[in-house]
């Protein structure tokens, strides 16, 4: 999915007018521009802290953050190393992912294939979808307690809508010819579902899983800020209470890196599992 909507690609003729040098060489790759941007931001940050423009309590230097990160990895913070905090978070998100897949895919199939299923489940999904997960976190804590179960439940709930909706959309997008072909080749209803409808829906389901991971990660960190005794969100929250800003920033960087990594993995799996999706 690399649809370029660059103005440059859309209207190359205007390049000169915009003022870009009409140099003979190749245009600078986007990745290089991005790298320069990141370097510049870190540079400004370093200068700001070097000249003490901002109090180090608010903005520690990049060096301090790197040191904090190192210390986090080696000795840890609030009774756990970085790996343990990240592990606790990943455990929750993958636990929630499995739960939401186990519930979401059958629910999506029910919505996509049956009028009754749609009638029953649609309102529930539509109610759940726009709700910020933290809005129902207190209720979940009342119901299932403060432990792991409440966090996994909340994260799973935040992932469910996108998995359900992507599954039902995938199921409904099945080609009519594909279904008819199977029926004319002797497939029973159940076989049509298992051999045609489900495989057709896999690309859409994987996209849903990828989106769900993003939503789940956001919810996870937020839930850990509010109610947890381990995990990357909890680590940041604790550090903030003691004004250990370098750890807060290091934690934020780690959260972002993991989010990027999850997205990358999900895309890799999509490409491996459904290479045909681009050729329908």
């Amino acid at each position: 999915m690399t649809f370029s909507t660059d103005i440059e690609t859309l209207a190359p003729a205007t390049d000169a007018e915009i003022g870009e040098k009409a140099s003979a060489g190749r245009p600078v790759p986007v990745a290089v521009i991005s790298a320069i941007t990141i370097t510049a931001i870190i540079g400004v940050w370093a200068l700001a802290s070097y000249y003490a423009l901002v109090s180090p309590v608010f903005l520690p230097s990049p060096r301090q953050v790197v040191i904090a990160l190192y210390n986090l990895i080696v000795t840890g913070f609030v009774d756990a190393t970085l790996a343990e905090h990240v592990g606790a978070s990943l455990y929750r998100i993958f636990g929630a992912l499995i739960a939401s897949i186990l519930i979401g895919i059958p629910a999506g199939i029910a919505i996509g294939t049956s009028r009754v299923g749609r009638g029953i489940l649609d309102p529930i999904v539509e109610f759940l979808r726009p709700l910020p997960p933290l809005a129902y976190l207190p209720l979940i804590i009342i119901w299932v307690g403060i432990g792991e179960a409440s966090k996994i439940t909340v994260i799973a709930l935040s992932m469910l809508p996108s998995i359900i909706l992507s599954t039902s959309a995938g199921v409904r997008s099945v080609s009519k010819d594909h279904v008819n072909a199977a029926r004319s080749l002797g497939a029973t209803r159940r076989q049509v579902l298992a051999e045609v409808v489900l495989p057709s829906a896999v690309p859409s389901i994987l996209t849903g899983v990828r989106i769900a991971l993003g939503a789940g990660w956001t919810t996870l960190v937020a839930a850990e800020l509010v109610a947890a005794t381990s995990g990357i969100g909890f680590m940041i929250q604790s550090a903030a209470q003691f004004l250990v800003t370098d750890i807060v920033i290091a934690g934020i960087v780690v959260i972002a890196l993991i989010a990027i990594l999850l997205e990358f993995l999900a895309r890799l799996i999509e490409r491996r599992l459904v290479p045909w999706a681009a050729h329908r």
Binding site: D177, V196, P199, S200, V202, V274, W276
Partner: peptide, 9 residues
């Protein structure tokens, strides 16, 4: 079928 309706997976 006219447009084959083969299963791409």
């Amino acid at each position: 079928f006219q447009d084959d309706a083969l299963y791409p997976w």
